[in-house]
């Protein structure tokens, strides 16, 4: 393992993009101490990106936000692009999303702004070789740990990549069937499990919540998405908006006193003192993560059983994708 300062090989950052961070599936085990999980906002796209280059699904890759970076390969490598389409090109030649490519020493990898979705993933065969900090390579920007020196990439950074075996061509040109490529619209319906504090709300508020088209405000990032609906969600006066602080799960939808929901995501605080009306189910978190400001979102309630069934179906797809071809 190196300290992330290797000067030969790897990927050189010519332009960092809006926010480019190293993310894997997140950091487990420290939420009880106040350190959140971080990890990829769109874990499906991350996992598929890894599968395409023959990595384990939970390997670390680059998460690109809204406008991607310009990188130079300082060694030969296999890369793949998934998630939001940021019009990737290699040496000026446009390439496809959801597909793996060989790049050679000296090649430029360039991205533009996202034409759909918000977050793209660029995986590298062998993974991004940053130190594992507290069990994960994910960048936790606020805590300033993990990823590349605990922060987003900057110009002139040199990002080390892991060793991999086998010829470059083995994992080149792999792609995903179109049925497994999500559609990143500007309007999504997201499924939720109600609670854990739904009883803090008036009956009408619960109904309103499930029948409102919410707009994503510009105050939306890896920590959370602030939504705006036509009418506020009213708490029962006997309960109010505040609770004794408790844990915040990924996808928790908290509603402060102003009645406008906030969906908490990868870089959320571990605990909070606002009522949570519902929680986005795991397989739909990417829909939120890929929604730009101005996008609209509506909610549909499902029970836990259905949410877990949907999760198993997605898991089956990922297992199936990772099984074709050598690792």
């Amino acid at each position: 393992m190196n300290n992330g300062e290797k000067k030969s090989g790897g990927l050189a950052v010519l332009k960092p993009g809006l926010l480019t961070t190293v993310q894997d599936l997140g950091r487990e085990g420290y939420q009880q101490f106040g350190l959140g999980t971080s990890g990829a906002m769109d874990s499906y796209a991350l996992q598929v990106a890894n599968v395409l280059v023959g990595n384990w699904r939970d390997e670390a890759a680059l998460e690109l936000t809204a406008a991607g970076p310009t990188l130079r390969a300082e060694e030969d490598m296999v890369v793949a692009f998934t998630g939001a389409n940021m019009l990737p090109s290699i040496n000026g030649e446009p390439v496809s999303m959801w597909k793996s490519y060989a790049v050679f020493k000296g090649d430029d990898i360039r991205f533009g702004s996202a034409v759909n979705g918000v977050r793209a993933y660029m995986s590298v065969r062998g993974g991004v070789d940053v130190p594992v900090v507290m069990g994960s390579k994910s960048t936790a920007v606020r805590a300033n740990i993990g990823g590349f020196n605990g922060r987003g990439l900057k110009k002139n950074d040199r990002l080390p990549i892991g060793k991999s075996e086998g010829a470059l061509t083995v994992h080149t040109g792999r792609k995903v069937l179109s049925e497994h490529i999500p559609d990143y619209g500007k309007s999504v319906c997201v499924r939720v499990v109600m609670g854990p504090q739904q009883e803090a709300f008036e009956e009408e508020a619960l109904e309103l919540f499930l029948n409102t088209d919410y707009r994503v405000t510009p105050e939306s990032d890896r920590m959370g998405y602030r939504l705006k609906g036509a009418k506020p969600l009213c708490h029962r006066p006997s309960v109010g908006a505040d609770i004794y602080s408790d844990a915040i799960a990924p996808g928790a939808i908290q509603v402060p006193g102003d009645g406008q929901p906030i969906i908490l995501l990868a870089d959320r605080q571990t605990t909070g003192g606002y009522t949570k009306i519902a929680t986005v189910i795991s397989v739909d978190l990417w829909k939120v993560a890929q929604l730009p400001p101005g996008g609209t979102i509506s909610f549909e309630a499902v029970d836990v059983k259905s949410a877990q069934k949907l999760w198993r179906e997605q898991e089956d797809i990922l297992v199936q994708l990772s099984s074709y071809g050598p690792r």
């Binding site: 499990v193 928790a252 949570k276 836990v304």
Partner: peptide, 10 residues
């Protein structure tokens, strides 16, 4: 005892 989404229990 309540579900919190599909991967936590409160």
């Amino acid at each position: 005892i309540k579900p919190v989404g599909d991967r936590a229990v409160r």
